[in-house]
């Protein structure tokens, strides 16, 4: 029962997260792009990243929604969340200053809370990867 529920639950949580995250970024595109423009690590790529990240998040959401592609969705989710986690760690430890974080409800968290949040969701993605049922051999 638990083995069946865990990957389903992981997929639902990640789908909700990425749907919300991508839509809030697109709705506040100007602000998001400006905040990326302030980031010491990605300021030169702000234009591409500003639409690239929500686009990848939407693709991830689509992959997670269908059982056939869900495993790929878990991998992509894990990669994205890990990147965000490393990015926040780098901002906190290697940046001269700490810029604003992203918009939407997630903006109510400070960078440290955001780091913990991302680690938790990275673990959820890992849970999805390692509990997703194997294909039955014919």
């Amino acid at each position: 029962m638990l083995k069946k529920t865990l990957p389903e639950l992981s997929a639902i949580l990640l789908t909700v997260l990425f749907t919300y995250a991508s839509i809030s970024k697109l709705l506040q595109y100007d602000t998001f792009k400006y905040q990326l423009g302030q980031s010491p690590f990605v300021t030169g790529y702000a234009g591409i990243v500003a639409w690239g990240i929500p686009a990848i998040e939407l693709v991830t959401t689509a992959l997670l929604m269908f059982p056939v592609t869900r495993m790929k969705g878990f991998y992509l989710s894990y990669g994205l969340l890990l990147l965000f986690t490393f990015y926040i760690y780098a901002i906190l430890h290697y940046s001269y200053f700490i810029p604003c974080s992203c918009g939407g409800i997630l903006s109510q968290m400070n960078w440290e809370q955001h780091l913990v949040f991302n680690i938790v969701f990275s673990l959820i993605a890992l849970t999805g990867i390692f509990t997703f049922p194997f294909k039955q051999k014919a």
Partner: peptide, 15 residues
């Protein structure tokens, strides 16, 4: 998973 972890780490290290 290991590959994704290393790739993400390398990308951020490069940035």
């Amino acid at each position: 998973t290991l590959f994704i972890t290393i790739a993400a780490l390398c990308l951020m290290f490069a940035l």
